[in-house]
Design a protein around this nucleic acid. Structure first.
Length: 283
DNA sequence: ATAATTTGACCGTG
DNA sequence: CACGGTCAAATTAT
């Protein structure tokens, strides 16, 4: 009858409290060279009896990006809630290794705008204590989006996070985003789309990318002369010219080819410009 | 069948 | 009291 809600032992008490906002800065690189990292906190192993840390005390990192799922880590969605202050629901993700490696790393993904390339505000809480090496994922961060001014172009910052070669964590994106018609009525902004060899849940998608690595004409044709992420992505010359310092290309190249290799099971990642969900907010 | 996801409800903090 | 956050169970997808 009633819901047997068991008493959960939520004794999350941490020390340290540095809520920094790395807005427009891809400096959110998780590289703890020796007990530091972005958060610089310690795992909750002490006796959480006295220090009643408030929620606000939790170390969190705010980052704006168009690819909230491209941080090189595996996240498991554990909740979704509608925020009164936001027209979009907030998604709660936790490290998939939380139970395996006690990784308390969690992140909140909230859509800020419903622009063609929806901007997501990702709030990272705690660092990954797991030993999993993040896959080289390009971070597309938006730099200070115009609040009210005519934002014609966002400053997309392409950065590569982590550079491990072993490949421990795989990106996994399993959002049930219904494929709506790509009506590029507004700005022909291109979305980042990575297709893997293995077909996943998106059986509805026959082919997101041509084998030759060409960008979908959907936006390609729609962007006659405008800086778009697609251009930057499609820019990398496939001619093995070995451009020194081509970190960007290197990353992308590895992403497009390295990840393409079905070494096991890579997650598909298809970003579609769907104007948020249809009114499907079952409340 | 397994795993991840989804949704609702409860708790904590402000 | 209200909002936000998390957990638990149920459902769905693979």
């Amino acid at each position: 009858m009633a819901s047997p809600r068991l008493k959960r032992e939520q004794s999350f008490d941490f020390e340290e409290a540095s809520a920094q906002e790395a807005v427009g800065s891809a400096s959110a690189s998780y590289s703890p060279p020796g007990g530091g990292g972005v958060f610089g906190i310690s795992p909750p192993e002490s006796s959480p009896r006295d220090g009643r840390k408030r929620r606000k005390d939790r170390p969190s990192l705010v980052k704006h990006t168009f690819t909230p799922h491209f941080d090189g880590h595996l996240w498991r969605k554990y909740g979704q809630k509608n925020i009164k202050d936001s027209a979009f629901p907030r998604l709660y993700y936790r490290c998939s290794y939380r139970e395996d490696r006690q990784c308390l790393a969690s992140k909140l993904v909230q859509q800020e705008n419903d622009d063609d390339p929806p901007l997501y505000r990702v709030t990272y809480t705690y660092e990954h204590t797991c030993n999993t090496t993040p896959v080289p994922t390009p971070d597309v961060v938006a730099e200070q989006p115009p609040p009210g001014a005519a934002g014609d172009a966002y400053l997309l910052r392409f950065g590569s996070s982590a550079g491990g070669g072993g490949g421990g964590a795989h990106q996994q994106q399993t959002e049930r985003e219904r494929q709506q018609q790509n009506t590029a009525r507004r700005r022909p902004f291109m979305m980042l789309s990575f297709d893997s060899s293995s077909s996943h849940q998106l059986h509805e998608q026959p082919h997101a990318f041509p084998p030759d690595g060409q960008l979908p004409a959907t936006a390609a044709a729609a962007s006659p002369s405008s800086f778009t992420a697609a251009e930057a992505l499609a820019a990398p010359p496939l001619t093995t010219t070995m451009n020194d310092g081509g970190d960007l290309f290197s990353t992308w190249d590895a992403l497009r080819y390295g990840l393409d290799y079905d070494h096991g099971h890579l997650g598909n990642h298809v970003y579609l410009p769907d104007d948020c969900n249809g009114g499907d907010d079952n409340y």
